[in-house]
Simulated scan of single mutants.
Amino acid sequence: MIPHTTTAAGRGGGEDYTTGEGLRALLARLHAEGPGAWRTDPIAAKLMEYAAEKYAALARKHGLDPWEAAAAAFDVMRTRSARGADDPWGVVTHAVRITCIAEERAQGLLCSTHQARRPHYSVFHDAERLSDRENPLDDYHPAFHITDPHPDDEHDGENEGEREVVEPAGVVTSASGAVEDAIAFVTVLGWPAQTARAAVEHVCHALARAGSRQSAFEVLRRDKHSRALLDLPGSSWTALLRALLGNPAPGIAATSAGRGILLRLLIGETLPVLLHDDDLVLTVSLAAPRKGGGRR
């Protein structure tokens, strides 16, 4: 906590807004005094200076000015959820972090902050100029690669055999890389490393046997034996399956939530992109089992 001394001034009280209880009392008083209180109350002005200092490092991490983070804090401080929260600073910090992420993504995607908050837009990579690349586009982009043998090739049969060997090897490498990335993603969000690896690998084996994500989801959802071996509560197991394999509901099959982590990694999305998906991050982190077991 950043040390800050507060004093009673003007009509305001002497709330110590650096504590959760003091912040809650100050927000309740400002709300009761009406909209003009935020403009005229000296304690409110000091609160915003404190917020700018408190979130300066978070703002710089996402390429923003500290006062942009303070503005985000101001927006959430005026809501009922902040005034009535058991931990108002926790609510404010979470909201500021989400806003900073959305602002950074909006700058990279050249879109509005509102759009950047939506997974439908945030899955895309940042905009870039073709001239920013050292190599020509056709040197690395798969859309410009020809994989079929040329009709005039004298060694069509030989090339065909080579493709049968090379292409499956590439798929295996891509799939194994997606598995490792999925394990890393789950581990970063608070899951024990051993549990994350065992759970993700078990899901992948079941997916290979079932042949489809929806079938694998239904089989694993009812697999109490595997869940017991992994020592996972039912809520954590179901949330992890939905995150890895996608939500099987027909209406969202084409969305990021419907695709799931494994498919999103296989089609080219990266860990940083997944970590910017706030709904997915929140789902996986809240589902993480406690160290001592039991439900969250």
Rank of each mutant, 00 (worst) to 15 (best):
M1G: 11
P3H: 13
P3Q: 12
A8W: 00
R11M: 13
R11T: 12
G14T: 11
T19S: 15
L26G: 05
L26F: 02
R29K: 08
H31F: 06
A32W: 04
A32P: 03
A32Q: 10
G34N: 07
P35R: 05
P35L: 06
A37D: 02
A37Y: 00
P42E: 06
A44Q: 01
A45N: 06
A51D: 06
A52R: 14
E53F: 06
K54F: 07
Y55L: 09
A56Q: 12
A57R: 13
A57G: 08
L58E: 08
L58V: 10
R60F: 02
A71W: 11
A73F: 05
M77N: 10
R78K: 15
R80V: 06
R80P: 01
R83N: 05
A85M: 10
D86N: 08
D86P: 09
G90Y: 07
V91T: 10
R97T: 09
I98K: 13
I101H: 03
A102Q: 06
A102S: 10
E103I: 06
E103Y: 10
E104S: 12
A106Y: 04
Q107C: 01
L109Y: 01
L110E: 02
C111T: 15
S112E: 01
Q115H: 05
A116W: 02
Y121T: 10
S122I: 02
V123D: 09
V123S: 13
F124T: 02
F124E: 05
D126L: 03
D126E: 05
D126T: 03
D126H: 11
A127M: 04
E128N: 03
R129T: 00
L130G: 13
Y140F: 05
H141E: 05
I146P: 00
T147G: 05
H150N: 09
H150V: 00
H155K: 12
G157L: 11
E158F: 09
G161E: 15
E164Q: 15
E164Y: 14
V165Q: 04
V171E: 13
V172P: 08
S174R: 12
S176V: 09
E180I: 11
A182E: 04
A182M: 04
A184I: 00
W191T: 03
P192K: 07
A193E: 15
Q194S: 14
R197K: 13
A198K: 13
A199E: 03
V200Q: 01
V203N: 01
C204W: 08
A208C: 02
A210G: 07
S212W: 01
A216Q: 03
F217Q: 05
E218Y: 10
R221F: 01
R222D: 04
D223T: 07
D223A: 07
K224G: 14
K224F: 11
R227A: 14
R227L: 13
L229Y: 00
L232C: 07
T238W: 02
T238S: 07
T238A: 07
A243M: 10
A243F: 08
L245W: 05
P248E: 13
A249I: 00
P250Y: 14
A254D: 07
T255M: 05
S256P: 12
L263E: 09
L266E: 10
H276V: 00
H276R: 01
D277K: 09
D277F: 01
D279T: 15
T283H: 14
T283D: 14
A287V: 06
R290I: 08
G294Q: 13
G294W: 10
R295Y: 11
